[in-house]
Design a protein around this nucleic acid. Structure first.
Lengths: 120, 120
DNA sequence: TACAACAATAGAGTATGGTCTATAGTTGAT
DNA sequence: ATCAACTATAGACCATACTCTATTGTTGTA
């Protein structure tokens, strides 16, 4: 599919998709047989990747971190051990985020309690 | 205390503290009796606030959101009902973040499983 | 063949959240 | 009195992650 269809499937703008492509997160393929244009073609895996990118972004991962994860899963850039290390690293950082969120929840609940009891 | 001491107590640079002050998150007081300088003085509540700001930032809240929470707790800018609404709103967004993190964990664990079993 | 809708590329512009520099003045110990 | 260490203010600069504009070229339908 071309970028417009990819955009419609993922809900991301063509600008954003091109930005992710420039950032190395996804990669379209140009058909060398066609000489009249240099349009990029995208497959279903790219749709998957973009969905993953959106999810990963909303939990706070940076483009760089997301790139590492994509490389650890879809590409042959790393050895098996390196891949596992990267993914474990990300799992640890998610555990950390969870802990911080739980702490923040506690704190906000305390705030609420203070508001309810006119202690602030 | 002056800004340097505040900086040492919180681990935040004086620049960052001044940035937060400009952003309306904290507020020092100038001693009008002293006419030779216009130094700002900070209290223990400001230390607390800065610690809260650091925690809130690391769970992904924006400066604006953090400002709302601080206003909902420390200030009289909002009614009791508005304060509770703001805090509940933030609790909901934390629940959402938790859900997303759990999903992401699942996905990364699947990735790991694929790596371990040479499925990618 | 005209033309709307699409494509690629380069580069400018925006928002957020800092971070740093320059300047000018103040304080406190020696 | 000197001077290092502090203070305030203004504004420049930076990184991240987009977002938009301008330009040029292509495709497909009427």
């Amino acid at each position: 599919m071309l970028i417009n269809e990819l955009s419609k499937k993922t809900g991301l703008s063509t600008h954003t998709i091109r930005f992710y492509e420039k950032s190395g997160l996804i990669e379209g393929k140009q058909n060398k047989a066609v000489k009249s244009n240099n349009y990029f073609h995208y497959d279903e895996v790219t749709v998957e990747k973009l969905e993953f990118i959106s999810d990963a972004k909303s939990v706070g991962f940076t483009i760089r971190e997301i790139g590492q994860m994509i490389d650890a899963w879809y590409n042959q850039k790393y050895t098996k051990e390196q891949k596992l290390e990267i993914l474990d690293d990300k799992l640890i950082s998610l555990e950390q985020k969870m802990k911080e969120i739980k702490e923040m929840k506690k704190q906000i609940i305390e705030f609420k309690d203070d508001v309810l009891n006119d202690r602030c």
